[in-house]
């Protein structure tokens, strides 16, 4: 054990009595908050994934519906299902990738919904109307859970990065976590909400 390590160890031992007041426990609980909120985020995205097959089946039944938009949705979904993040590893790169594949699903879906504008029968279909309401609700849920996730991350990040915790948070493996960035799809979440 070299001198530097020894010093660190000593400093650590000296700090032990202060941990309860210096926020170790709080760091843990804030990190847990972020982790569990991440689960909520994944849940709502999964909810959207689960809706897509229903939607595709409903739309597919309509004569000469444009195949291309449907295929795009299916492909984007397949791609997005393959990207999941381990909640203990919420790095910027990971989150960015997640956001990108989900963003593709969003835009494929909004293209699909736009195409449906041209099919009045389909628009009046009860089954479709319900799916549409569910999809809108899901987009809202995604927006809400993302916002909550960002708030939790912000709490956690500002806590571990403020003095004096900024000095020792890293020793215990508390790293800065990444945020969702406001992308176009998120800003206009209920895109599928068309002229009602």
């Amino acid at each position: 054990m070299n001198r530097k390590n020894l010093l660190q160890l000593l400093a650590l031992i000296m700090l032990i009595p202060f941990f309860s007041s210096c926020g170790y426990n709080r760091m843990v609980s804030l990190e847990e908050g972020v982790t569990s909120q991440w689960a909520n985020v994944e849940n709502v995205y999964q909810r959207r994934m689960d809706l897509i097959p229903n939607l595709v089946n409903t739309v597919k039944g309509y004569a000469n519906f444009e195949q291309q938009t449907l295929t795009q949705v299916i492909e984007a979904r397949a791609k997005a299902t393959s990207v999941t993040i381990d909640p203990t590893n919420l790095t910027e790169a990971n989150l960015k990738q997640f956001q990108q594949v989900q963003g593709e699903v969003s835009s494929a879906l909004s293209r699909l919904m736009m195409t449906i504008e041209r099919y009045p029968d389909l628009k009046a279909n009860q089954n479709f109307l319900e799916l549409q309401a569910q999809l809108e609700g899901t987009e809202n849920r995604i927006a809400v859970e993302r916002r909550k996730f960002n708030e939790d991350v912000q709490k956690y990040n500002s806590y571990i990065r403020s003095f004096p915790r900024v000095i020792y948070a890293g020793w215990f493996g508390f790293e800065k976590k990444a945020y969702f960035e406001a992308d176009q799809a998120a800003k206009e979440a209920p895109k599928v909400d068309f002229g009602n």
Partner: peptide
């Protein structure tokens, strides 16, 4: 607390 459930109209 709210999780985004509901619907809208205009």
């Amino acid at each position: 607390s709210f999780g985004g459930g509901g619907a809208r109209g205009s």
